[in-house]
Design a binder for these strands. Sequence first.
RNA 1: GCCGGAGUGGCGGAAUUGGUAGACGCGCUGGACUCAAAAUCCAGUAACAGCAAUGUUGUGCGGGUUCGAUUCCCGCCUCCGGUACCA
Length: 993
Amino acid sequence: MHNNANLIPFCLFLRKNTTLPLQGFFGEEVVTKLTIMEYRFSEIETRWKQYWEENKVYKVSNDSSKPKYYVLDMFPYPSGAGLHVGHPLGYIASDIYARYKRLNGFNVLHPMGYDAFGLPAEQYAIQTGVQPAISTAQNIARYRSQLDNLGFSFDWDREVQTSNPSYYKWTQWIFLQLFSHYYDTQADAARPISALEVHFSRHGSSNLNAAHNDFDAFTAEEWQEMNKAEKETILMNFRLAYRKVTYVNWCEALGTVLANDEVKDGVSERGGHPVEKKPMMQWSLRITAYAERLLNDLQTLDYSDAMKKMQSNWIGRSEGARMFFGVESSDVKLEIFTTRPDTLFGVTFMVLAPEHELVASLTTPEQESKVAEYLTYVQSRSERERMAEVKEVTGEFLGSFAVNPFNGKKIPIFIGEYVLKDYGTGAIMAVPSDDDRDNLFALKFGIEIIDVIDKSKYPGATRNDKLGVMINSEILDGMEVPDAIEFMLKEIENKGIGSRQVNYKLRDAIYSRQRYWGEPFPIIYDKEGIAIPLDEKDLPLELPVLENFQPASGAVSPLARAQDWVNLPNGDKRETDTMPGFAGSSWYFLRYMDPSNDQVFASDDALNYWKDVDLYVGGTEHAVGHLMYSRFWHKFLYDLGKVPTIEPYKKLINQGMIQGVVESVYLQKDKIQGKNRFISASLLKSEEEKGHHFTKIPVLVDYVTDYGNMTGSHLSEKGVQQFIKWRPEFASAIFVSEGGSIENGIFTPNKEDDSFQLITYSEVGKMSKSLYNVINPDDVVSKYGADCFRMYEMFLGPVEQAKPWDTKGIDGVNKFLRKVWHLFRDAEGNWLLNDKPASLEAFKVLHTAIKKIQDDITRFSFNTCISGFMIAVNDFQKMNCHHKEVLNPFLILLAPFAPFLSEELWQQAGNKGSIHQAVFPVFESKYLEESSIEYPVSINGKLRATLTFDANGGEAEIKEAVLQLEQIKKWTEGQTIVKIIVVPKRMINIVIK
RNA sequence: GCCGGAGUGGCGGAAUUGGUAGACGCGCUGGACUCAAAAUCCAGUAACAGCAAUGUUGUGCGGGUUCGAUUCCCGCCUCCGGUACCA
């Protein structure tokens, strides 16, 4: 609409018969003059972009006397699709905030980089053979130009890319630190593994305070006699990065293992492929050691309550008892975890996870075949099936009996799918009276149910609530549930059959991926299979270039093919798995502080100056993945004394997703005489009544004409032609609208005057290539300019809120920016700047705006902030006010290319130096002070009048004045005034009877 | 199921501490300028009744507290997000 090519003839036409003399029409001079008059954003933006780059306007120094402020965006994964309009939402918000802080005298670190390792680049390589390094570099270049188009104030000299060896050198380095440390549960900190070796050689495995996997106890003497391999095996159970056979989420389609947060609803988050549980030898990170700190320190953070809740649910702390049940005529002790020791007298059976290691030994000969059958059934089921049929209880009796340690009762032992191998001990005591699942199980297998809690005192309490009075429980009878829990915990410890235990849902993070495009592990295996860390001086261990990216068979990384790389001259072999996506992103914010340091990941000076991220902006989808991992790594680095703060991100804002509008046409599922048939959405109901079924086919929004006021869109005849061109498989389809149908491109109307309008179905959904609703910010920018795009995205609604992209309102913002431009230009396009002091009224408008903009930015409310800006400009325009005082740098926060400003105008207005050194204007309340204030006066809540009172009058004075007023006397005549409520500067209410 | 969040005009949304509900923008209606259109400017725009002044109703539904409730409390409904055999 406003690109230059169209503008010149348009302007000529515009002025043709109005103010210009006819002979000037085609003259050079007139054309030039006319074009100056328009707000030509692309010219302005290009000029500023160049200026910013040449002068490194946004370069930040680590050496400053100013206070620091760190504004961080979650860095993007540079996918082949490029940025869509949803991505910049958070970047725009954080950019406004960063600029605001800069104008307020802070030294602001506001960097950007790329999370460049990951699956899509590798999948692309598998399909096309293009090296991931090359496609990633191309994608990054595209992202960069898209970002540059939007006018962000990033310091690009600090850019990081996680796939760059100079970056992942330090990712590998941190891994080595995790490998060489264990978690001291007494000191509540990570400690060098060497300290543990000293302990072992003195005390063996007794008196240990260390987070660990299961291992067999040993004495100091035994330790000293162990060979290196045996010692390493023991130590592996303590390292914060350790290798172990674990039940992992194996995704066959992706050929790799996935972390818990990468699996959603039983399928992979990327690609939606099925996932199965499989025991595999994997590297893991002992994040569970930090569970308590990750949970407790949430309190110190300025995150939304929802975010904190999500994280604490994911950590899933529960308190209870770990205790042993004996098994009848056997030495086996069955260990269980329960949060309800109060219900011990209601236990009528035990359930083990099917994978539990005691299953075989507890199975009696007569039950053997049945158990085997059940195990086969369990193995045949995918994760997805298991999750889908939650209500269905399955299980099998093992034939053995456990013994209740409190009353000696015989309890049958079952296995069942609903008990999970990797939570608690993988075994439970089942109390059918007070647990829904146990109850279902008991009903299905006809097991006794003993009521142990009388809930009659608590109407509405469910089976799972910890409420009621104990019954049928011998020593506990008559106690309230919480007291009984406490009592039994003590009893269990007294009897020596168990102890208090805190359990977490959080699992250790699986850290191996059988993929190519990730950080190689700095680990070598010797002939005995002992994992040996690389020396720090040998980092980075660079990823070798591969020709073939196909996943290798047998759950091995494609890296195994790089024989030269894998096999070392002395016969040792390198680890061939790579690190997961979250490795590089767990610490990138630290690298920005000192991005090119090759001695340390960041210097102490840099770390001590920047400390932590003051404001972090990003999507909620990272709530339990990235955020948890990076908090964990940060705490670990803190334990090592490498970072000065216990938390990485002080304040977190989650921007909402920008969704797309998905327009679809209804396609009949069953073909009629071999032909596809599309119908208008308006006909859907009647067609369905005829017994037809339909499916939705997304159509390109460009083909869809908006009805304007009405909801819904439609395909015209032309739209159908375009649709067919784009989907040739539907060339011979029939398109049925209310007015008639199209077949083979020919429209047959029902009646003479009927037109063709195929109503589409529109809904809000993801912005995605496959739904043909992706909107590229570049297109919006070339049409309206970056300032307009940025302001419009902010104006759309609260940053935190999800909303569909809709260009309907963008004209309002565009109009506004042109208005601002014209505020400082005369009819000839010359600068318009009044030197005389502005009126008090203008100052009032200005300071109202300053206050509002300041308040709104502080509370991250950019939509209302822009409203305030708009009001001010409208007022200035009405006052015809072009005074220099009005020219304030707060404008460039919201529209950084500031079409209405320029360096020279800024200086003409009497300012020294560059506009980029401007400071945010100081709000002066004196301009808003009133000598008198208008009060709405209500009687019994009903608005009666607006009366003016002295602004300096106190409440008592106003009350007095109200009573003296003739009008009031008239209105309240014959009634008793109960009281007068004066809300200062707001309203007056008189209560009468 | 459980845990969060939200529900306000034709639409996006505002109301910061309980104080004139609907700011700002879109859309729509009318007007000015124009032979005309576009652009721009002005006015109107929650619903209902009325020529109007004005009145009545109104923030998902039902109740409550209060002089006064979009805001606080109790009970429902709907939508969105997270999570799910977690013992």
